[in-house]
Amino acid sequence: MSLIKNGAFAEDQFQSIADDAPLPANGTIVSLARFGREREALLARNAPLGVRLKSEESPEALGEDVHRLSVVVLEFPKFRDGRAFSWARMLRTRFHFEGEIRAVGAFLYDQLAFMARVGIDAFEVRENFTEADFARAMGEMSEVYQPSADGRPTIRSLRARARSLDPTPPRP
C-alpha cells in the first residue's frame, strides 16, 4: 500500500497498531476502542497520534479530544458503505478538525472525487495506483453544484459571478 496525500505520494509517518500490540516511539494510529481504554496515556505521549474509526463509529465519540489528534482514519469496509462520507464532512464542518483525514479500505477510483470533497485529504491506495490516476479522478468533473467541506465555489456562485460580469438575463 502507498499513501497519497494532497495529491502526491507521501511517506507514511504513522504506524497503525493492533489493540494488543506495544506502542512504537513515534506516530501511532490506534482504534477507537483502544483510544477509549488508554486515552490518558496515549495523549500524554510526546508523539503524534491518530485514531481509526470503523464505518459505524461516529467521530462524535472523540469529543473535544479530536483536536489533540494529528490523524483521523476512516475505514471503508465495503465501497457501498457510505457512512464515512458523513464522518469526514462532520469532522471538517462541525468539529473544524484541521488534521489529516485518511481513507483506508475498499473504496474505488470513482469515489475519490467525492471523498476529497467531503474533506478526506489522504488515501491509502494500491501499489499500482499512480499520481496521474489520482489527478484524473480529481479532474473528471470540473464544477460542482453543492457546497461541501472543500470550500469549492458552487455552480450557483459561478453563475452569480458570470452574471455580475454580463448582466444579460437568461433566456426563458
Binding site: R80, G82, F85
Partner: peptide, 14 residues
C-alpha cells in the same frame, strides 16, 4: 435536482 446531482456525501446511501 441540481443540489442532489453527484452529491459528494449522499451518493452511497444505505
Amino acid at each position: 435536482r441540481q443540489w442532489s446531482s453527484l452529491h459528494p456525501e449522499f451518493s452511497f446511501l444505505p
